[in-house]
Amino acid sequence: MSTNPFPLDKADLMKAYRTMRTIREFEERLHVEFAKGDIPGFVHLYAGEEACATGIMMHLTDVDRIASTHRGHGHCIAKGVDVHEMMAEIYGKATGACRGKGGSMHIADLAKGMMGANGILGAGAPLVCGAGLAAKFRGDGGVGITFFGDGASNQGMVLESMNLAAVWNLPVIFVVENNGYAESTSVDYATAVDSYVDRASGFGLPGVTVDGTDFFAVYEAAGEMIRRAREGGGPALLECKMVRFFGHFEGDAQTYKAKGENDYNREHRDCLKIFAARVREAGVVTADEFAAIDREVGALIEDAVASAKAAPLPSARDLTTDVYVAY
């Protein structure tokens, strides 16, 4: 077998693939299940964007904190939140990560450093400034990473947070997940700079734009930024240009997309396919090994859905629990 040309060893390459495959399977399955009408609320699916969450989260441990978006399932899975608890949460069940009270847009798991998906666009940015400040005071080398979309990037609090992170030199990374649309509005229409790097430089932050469908591009750029931030080198911005396979939310007719756009993206810009092909062609992981992961992940998601469906709903008594937190 040839030598490994990648910056990750075989075990980590398989881990990255397993994470991306888990996110994909989770989202594809939700797409089907949501249409059946059993899932309360909205779901926004991350399918197509897996390389971004995974390429970044491969550098993190539980001390590192992330703040996610309304499209947060991928971030949760990549950060290590339990898939069964996530699925149960989305179904609104008492066994969910937040006991069924949050749903898709509020999955959180502080033990895993996952500070929460967030229904308010851009709201994760100030949260990770807090996480970054805490890490800085504790001196634990932790970093805070916030994700936000091309649309959310125009929220005032995102810009305020970049300013704060810059002046306090916080170990914080701002990740713009630029999938080209905010609901149905294209980024070209709604964002007044042609690169988010220009925004970052207004605050004196270094910014990098990468192809977010290329796991290795994300992994490498994020690795440098995270290392720098851990060492006290300060905040940075990473823009990942990516595609989302589904609509904005489940049920979106996607009339704003070009004809054939989704098919083209699935054919040519699928981060999982691109990753698997490169790693297989380099002879590091075999097709059989990938197929085994696919089977394993398929069974995991199947079981997560089955147990979520079977789990009990919260009772009326649960209404008054978890309202306040004791410190």
């Binding site: 720098r228 006290g232 080198g233 300060g234």
Partner: peptide
Amino acid sequence: RGHVMRGIERSRNQG
């Protein structure tokens, strides 16, 4: 001034 001093501090932090 702030940007410059932070730049120097970041570099120093990185040894």
